[in-house]
Design a protein around this nucleic acid. Structure first.
Lengths: 274, 274
DNA sequence: GTCGAGAATTATGTCGACATACCTGCATCC
DNA sequence: GGATGCAGGTATGTCGACATAATTCTCGAC
């Protein structure tokens, strides 16, 4: 349980330790909503999938890191069969890669894939927002207004973590309003893949300002049921977010994959010393 | 190995028995391309997944039919573990549903889901075709011209099965030309889900004529690198195909889910009698 | 004759074990 | 000194078995 906090150059608060685990809890909930969609009851498999998935999107497990089934089986005090299944669930969501006869590992997100994902998201989310603007009920709007308020509060309080998760919830509610479960599933999956990078993307102060302004615009488009505007706004925002990420990747802001062997060794020796 | 052929009201040839199994082989290949993407080597799991998947899209296994893991394990002379994993792969592609602690079964495609899928496909495929029109190489065009010729030949020969598979290949080549693997994966998965219905949709003579004309138009748009036109054409075609399916569903042209219990019983007794 | 509760049966989820393929470290060779 | 091949160790894929939940069958009541 690390208590290290990072002082940031800008005025936003450093994430306090308690909020660290709160963010992790949010991550677990989001992962559960997406990967364990039909595993409604808390089964062993879904628990493992949710926790490991959350560790990935919270960058506790880094890109390329090995996910040995025996190691995980020991940690969760179970056999390798449920672990295997949990990893398959995560592979389905693109968080994990499982090559044949090789160790499963955390999927590596290179810029080419990020580009692809954001382009698909831009198009699909645009269409979904367009539908949402048309089909939205008053109940949808109330929920979205609440979330916009939460977003705004987090923005004013300069709380990055709170802003991030409110953002996720806002988009979630928006996709629900479009009433297309298939589209929602795809968007959720794509979101999950890039959730690891969200902190990077929104770490720039100007990006945060733009994001907040963007959400207000979206909300207006929804209030006025202006479907084409909602479409364009969403697409524009996604392509802009992609541009930011392209820049961060170009500057080497994304750590390269860990040499997994090392980490495994460390884990092994740690276990021996216990 | 059934040899029953259906005489159709229109002039298209009844599918001969040999072509039945040829169609099944095509189905296996398409399923392999999509579900066993990274299972390059012929492993046990991918073999089962491909065959069962092909049986589903060829309507050999009907909507809602049970897929008992013990039954499949016996049939493929293996244990239940690989079967389980194969079914998970198929669930990932939406062909199979695996409720907790209940028997896995062939996913049921109701009209609401078909509607969702076609709408997502329309939007996403439109964007992909648009990209393809821009990014296409001469190599892409040659492959597409060949496929258009195959399509045309099948159309002239009134061979429904050949037309269907050439159609699938055409779309496959088109998505490759757009050079977005993420979009391609999603479109492939969506295609797989509705492949069961393709025969229905294209069984109408007028629909086939329109489809053929549509492909020629698409090809022209690609030749002239007219991205917006490609987008609109694809979207229009998909929404039209959806309208046809809506009508077929409304007329009850889609058989309702089989009572799975009965089928299982039959299989069990057949095994005993051997 | 139909419906409902309980027993018997069956299938699933999980487990521990084994064979095989892979990874790692070391010795050898160029 | 760096690359290559081999041997030991280790993780994976698969298996058969068991506990438990779900389904089916049976019997009885209304």
């Amino acid at each position: 349980m690390t208590t290290i906090t990072f002082e940031r150059a800008d005025s936003w608060i450093a994430t306090p330790p308690s909020s660290q685990s709160e963010s992790f809890l949010n991550a677990v909930l989001v992962v559960r909503r997406i990967v364990a969609e039909h595993h409604d009851r808390p089964s062993l498999v879904s628990r493992v999938a949710c926790e490991v998935g959350a560790e990935i999107i919270e960058n506790i497990r880094q890109s390329g890191e090995d996910l040995s089934s025996v190691e995980l089986a020991e940690r969760y005090e179970t056999s390798r069969t449920p672990i295997r299944e949990a990893l398959l669930l995560l592979e389905k969501e693109g968080l994990v890669r499982i090559p044949q006869r090789r160790r499963p590992h955390v999927a590596v997100l290179d810029i080419a894939e990020v580009r692809e994902i954001y382009r698909v998201r831009a198009v699909l989310f645009g269409a979904v927002a367009s539908d949402a603007a048309t089909l939205r009920t008053e109940e949808d709007m109330e929920a979205l207004r609440d979330l916009l308020a939460r977003l705004s509060a987090a923005h004013d309080a300069h709380d990055l973590s709170a802003y991030l998760w409110a953002n996720v919830e806002f988009y979630n509610r928006l996709t629900i309003a479009a009433r297309n479960a298939t589209a929602k599933r795809i968007l959720d999956s794509l979101l999950l893949r890039t959730l690891r990078l969200r902190r990077l993307s929104l770490s720039q102060p100007t990006r945060r300002e733009k994001s907040m302004a963007h959400h207000i615009q979206i909300m207006n488009a929804l209030e006025e049921q202006d479907a084409p505007l909602a479409d364009v706004l969403i697409r524009s925002n996604h392509l802009h977010a992609l541009a930011v990420l392209e820049q961060i990747y170009a500057e080497g802001g994304v750590p390269s994959p860990t040499r997994s062997r090392r980490r495994r060794r460390q884990a092994a020796t740690a276990a021996e010393e216990e």
